[in-house]
């Protein structure tokens, strides 16, 4: 995977790294990165998981309390370089919540962000250090990453929010927003009425 190489290159090695996946789809992505790094570096980087639900800025606004996933950061993160991993980077609000939560665990020497898909429309001054694919989108589209570990299939789905259809507009609100990492063959644009159009199958390289 290209991102794995970039992470190692940027940090000149792996000694000080800890990968932290953001629930839910950032977690298997972080684990894949660890495996990839191990293949060519021969060293296993510690990996953790973080659930940002309790740090969301819209907890009081959403109608349904989301299920809180596991947060497991086993290592002391103080002085380490943290690579936050998520599937889609969108408004940046998830990343902001993750940064706040991480800082409650210690004082990392740096935090870098790796995402599979950057779809734009940032609402905060946040950018990714490692991007699998930039996918320009309009704000009423949805980008959904499906992973074998969670969804049983590998693809990135570009959809359009359709009023009162089952493509859930609140989905972005309920799941955590940002996500990162596969590859989108960015071409077939979904028609305005299409609820979900399968985009290219993600393949990691």
């Amino acid at each position: 995977m290209r991102i794995a190489h970039e992470i190692v290159e940027r940090n000149k090695g792996v000694e000080n790294l800890i990968l932290v996946g953001i629930q839910k789809r950032g977690v298997p992505l972080a684990e894949r990165l660890v495996v990839a790094i191990e293949q060519f570096e021969g060293a296993r980087v510690p990996v953790g998981a973080i659930d940002i639900t309790l740090y969301r800025d819209d907890l009081q606004m959403i109608s349904q309390v989301p299920i809180v996933g596991e947060t497991a950061i086993k290592n002391d993160i103080t002085g380490r370089v943290i690579i936050l991993v998520d599937d889609v980077l969108f408004t940046g609000r998830t990343v902001r919540a993750a940064l706040d939560e991480l800082i409650d665990f210690g004082r990392p020497s740096a935090i870098q962000l790796a995402v599979l898909v950057d779809r734009g429309h940032r609402e905060f001054p946040i950018r990714a250090d490692f991007v699998g694919k930039n996918v320009p989108t309009s704000s009423n589209e949805t980008v959904e990453v499906l992973l074998t570990e969670i969804d049983g299939e590998e693809q990135v789905v570009l959809g359009e929010v359709v009023e009162e259809e089952q493509t859930p507009p609140e989905r972005k609100g309920v799941d955590m927003p940002a996500k990162a990492k596969k590859k989108v063959a960015k071409k077939s644009v979904c028609g305005p009425k299409a609820k979900k159009t399968k985009k290219g199958c993600g393949k990691k390289k």
């Binding site: 639900t53 740090y55 809180v68 665990f105």
Partner: peptide, 16 residues
Amino acid sequence: DTFKEISERPIKKVPA
């Protein structure tokens, strides 16, 4: 079950 872990953190507090 997931909240149990919060009491193990160095800063035992979340802003929920």
